[in-house]
Computed example of a mutant assay.
Amino acid sequence: MNADLSREEAEKVFDQHAKAVFGVLLALTKSKTLADDLTQETFMRAFQKYGSYCRHEPIRPWLARIAVNLARSHYRKLNWQKLFGQVPDRPTDQTAETVALQNERQQELWQAVCRLPHKSREVIVLHYYAEIPLKEAAQTLEIPLGTCKSRLAAGLAKLRVNPDLLTHRLHNCSQTREEVR
């Protein structure tokens, strides 16, 4: 643990943000087990590097950036292993759809989000599911704000193929279909 962070502060940060970080990782990895492992790794790294965190900035985007980078790193390692023929067995736990979404309409929307290209899906997950503003999502993904907005617009355009999906709100989202246009 970092000397800049007391045990009590660390517990408070974990309690307040672990569920959101897990949700982002579950959406990106589609594996409950992997999301749990990466959530733990996210907080271990965050606590080690807490001294580099700018305390007047919101902490959730900083944690999300660490989580997204860990997920990307994990998949880069998997791709590297595939090149050399050493592919690990995939876990057989429940899918993200059955774990993260409770009713049928939310499942339909979630399945549509999962079919989006990875870059659009990252922005939608961070903005709507983790409730991170676009500016902070862009910082989290280390892309320009305009690129973030373009990826969001492209993802939403693909979701509009089924207009009934956008009449229902995205999980934990206060914007309706008209507001996101």
Rank of each mutant, 00 (worst) to 15 (best):
I66H: 05
I66V: 09
I66C: 06
V68M: 08
N69W: 06
S73D: 14
S73V: 00
H74K: 12
H74W: 11
R76G: 01
R76A: 13
K77T: 13
L78P: 05
L78T: 04
W80P: 00
W80T: 15
Q81C: 07
L83V: 07
G85R: 03
G85W: 08
Q86H: 14
R90T: 11
D93R: 01
Q94P: 02
Q94S: 12
T98Y: 09
V99Q: 06
V99M: 04
V99L: 14
L101I: 03
L101Y: 10
Q102S: 15
N103G: 08
E104C: 01
Q107C: 13
E108D: 10
L109D: 03
L109N: 04
V113C: 07
L116V: 06
L116Q: 11
P117C: 02
P117N: 10
H118I: 05
H118E: 14
K119N: 10
R121V: 01
I124F: 00
Y129M: 08
A130S: 07
K135A: 13
K135R: 14
A137L: 04
Q139C: 10
I143E: 14
L145I: 13
C148Q: 03
C148W: 00
K149R: 09
K149I: 08
K149H: 13
S150T: 10
R151Q: 13
R151F: 12
L152M: 15
L152A: 02
A153S: 10
A153K: 13
A154Q: 06
G155H: 01
L156F: 00
L156S: 00
L156V: 15
A157S: 15
K158C: 03
L159G: 01
